[in-house]
Design a protein around this nucleic acid. Sequence first.
DNA 1: ATGAAAGCGCTAACAT
DNA 2: ATGTTAGCGCTTTCAT
Lengths: 330, 330
Amino acid sequence: MSASTVSRVANGKKYVNSDKRQRILRLIQETGYVPNKAARSMVLKKTSSVGLVIPDTFNIFQRELFSIIERSLEAFGYYTMFFFSKFEDTSENNCLNKLKAENLDGIVVLHEMKNAAFYEYLYKACIPAVTATFRYPGIPAVHVNEEQASTDAVSHLLSLGHRDLVMISGDGFTFGRQRAEGFFQALTAADIDFDVKRVVFVRNYTAEFGVYGMRELLLRRGVGQNFTALFAATDELAIGAIRVLKDAGMRVPEDISVVGFDDVDISDYIIPRLTTVRQPIKEIGEQTALALHRRISEGSVVPEDQVLPHRLIIRESTQAIRFMAKQDAE
Amino acid sequence: MSASTVSRVANGKKYVNSDKRQRILRLIQETGYVPNKAARSMVLKKTSSVGLVIPDTFNIFQRELFSIIERSLEAFGYYTMFFFSKFEDTSENNCLNKLKAENLDGIVVLHEMKNAAFYEYLYKACIPAVTATFRYPGIPAVHVNEEQASTDAVSHLLSLGHRDLVMISGDGFTFGRQRAEGFFQALTAADIDFDVKRVVFVRNYTAEFGVYGMRELLLRRGVGQNFTALFAATDELAIGAIRVLKDAGMRVPEDISVVGFDDVDISDYIIPRLTTVRQPIKEIGEQTALALHRRISEGSVVPEDQVLPHRLIIRESTQAIRFMAKQDAE
DNA sequence: ATGAAAGCGCTAACAT
DNA sequence: ATGTTAGCGCTTTCAT
């Protein structure tokens, strides 16, 4: 029989005698035949593959997220190709070139490319894209309300009686600035003095940089500043910061309350269990995949912003301010 | 000019007038032309892509590892495709089928497929493969000596005076059994009674399952058993176990010493800092990529086993046994 | 040094 | 219902 008949069977098309269909199906089984994807995608002019652009170094939350996205995409029948990119021009261009060679059906952007050429290419080449955990004008995004979530975290601290707050954030991504923004908003709303010194920005969102951030904060503390509570822009930053506090003889939460962000899996197991803002990571991943699938299959062009609900998870690392702590300070 | 000339330029072939070459190069730059990978791989009969088979659920160590492998592979000019597989037949077959469709140049196996059909396919289809963190007969492997590493960890506990040891391991992968094996070997070598009750096997290597494991151990403890030290098959298992101990009012390391395995990035920041066995994760990743590259490019068939050196990292979670602890027990 | 032509494995349009 | 043909974008002979 001819190639086209086999093709018809393989793709479940009509117009095939059912005897013949059975026979071909059996043969496919026996020989373990699998159609060549390259050839298929060449004639179909689509690859059933989507690209996932991710940061070269990622924290636990991001790692979790992109594996969820990968699996959700797979459920829709897409293959996922990962593209790592650093926060630097050469790396981004490199990444873009690889992307171009793939004829991807769509792209999920998890890493904020700073080079506008990237987004221009997506636009010109009419490649459906969705961003997750951040926004870019004209592209549908799935994310939480970072400012509001941060404000909620800080409000929790405020409601516990804390007035002297500090924050560790990062300068690498927009969310770092947004979370700091939320921090300041909550503070000003509570009539607390607006002092930029309350926030230290570190290069990365890992525990290692949490250590650096807290050391800096402790240094500042020495020269007149003081604090009873910390808001860390990620759980890992919090873990590093708590480490330093412990080493400096300060107890969490007795002396210092700490709240993190992300609700990474280990946050519920560390000592003390971390109070944090949970991002609905599963939903973010699934909605991102769904949004991209819809853009690809239905060609819906309307860029819609999906803001998913966050939730404050109160655990052990925060507690009401004690008078002792205040007295120690004076 | 003709397509073939452009092709020659794009691939850096000879026999092109240098004026023309310059002109084409410039045009490529300007138009942002990138050759279509599908068409290329069809005629070349190779894809420059390698598959990375990874477990559907992975712990921090594995996540770190496969991102290192991906980057190392990229350095050799390969694209990486990720294939997730569960520990179950349908999922493995599914994974195998996807693999087949790709015409991969090579495959890195990080997930122990139990279905032999998988390895048979690799063999029959002559697809170069390398396994990492475990071994499969006939395939080059990159890994540490799991038994020896475990023995070293236990010896450390022994040298601290501990005699009553327990272990939490998993049954999902070979390394779980190997690490338990090393545990028993160290015990028998030290003339300590060989009691299978000393080890509890959980379904997964995460903190969550560390909690379950320790709860079980504590239950057993109630009925006459006792222990002053724990060896956890992964750092995350250790984190979960320490959590339970803390909740049960036991201090680490004052009452119970704990040693983990992997030296995951956060292990140096948690409270207490975790004593653990470090796997040379970077080297494992790099050597895996290198081994595969060599098999692909040089076609070397000799399956060689690469055993990389581990290292015991002593931190805060272990300390010499105290008499008090012994007395408490009696 | 360059161009023309063939062919990689597949699917879709066209015949029958 | 089935086979034949053309063509996807590239590289590689083979001519010139």
